[in-house]
Amino acid sequence: MSATPYRTPVVSKVKLETILNMYRRGMRTDNRDLYSPRNLNVQVGVIEKANGSALVKLGNTQVIVGIKLGIGRPFEDTPNEGVLQVNSELVPMASPLFEPGPPDENAVELSRVVDRSLRDPKAVDLGSLVIRPGEKAWVLWIDIYVLDYDGNYFDASMLGVMAALMNTRVPDYEESESGEIIIKKDSPGTPLKLNKRVVLVTTAKIGNYIVVDPNLDEEALAESRLVLAFDEQGTVVGAQKTGSGAYSVDEFYRAVEISRSAAQVYFKLLDSALQKNQGG
């Protein structure tokens, strides 16, 4: 059962007024304009035992993504495809707002928004993950771990997922005489095939303002948030309104336009963060 949240961060009136005053001048409390995301830092391959991994810092929000490949069965209706599974955990160490236990509705929502934003535009070439049609295929497990929460785990998670997918290698395997698939441990493997890259862009509605990549204070003040998934061509590949508020039609379209521009900023940030990562 879903209930009105009762554990929400408290933001003082003074802070709210400061934030709105700064918006009026086109500024934010963490030194950026209304439509810019925070700084992005990405480290790939941080978990050697995973087939792909990334640690992402979007401002002070930290997310680690681990990708594991295992042998399973394709779904009956898609015998020629591998299986994509997305799971996320809002671990209690990340924030006093998170509680231990099985994924709550927020974690489930995060998993499902990331899942459909990858699945519908066919971001991962699942066809390349079939081993024997209808019988054996790779199962691609994407596990999202929110480690430190300062707002906007949607965007940070998807950036982490992209970085990790781009860094994922599918292990080599051989078939035994009985038809068993044996994964070759420590094999170099081949890079995972991606069809396209996708980012999530979250905007928050605070007063009459729409701001990109809200931090925790802004999320707490936001009436509502809009999460939109875009590919590099600017096509919308997923969407979710989240939070207890509502949008006028005008505000809604404004948020969509703002998000679409911000998506391209995220792609650039991701590229330069990955480049920096390789250089260092």
Binding site: D120, T235, V236, G238, A239, Q240, K241, F252, R260
Partner: peptide, 13 residues
């Protein structure tokens, strides 16, 4: 007011 919005799939703007 729009109170729910979701998209499962691909659409141009």
């Amino acid at each position: 007011l729009i109170t729910l919005f979701q998209l499962n799939g691909v659409m141009t703007l």
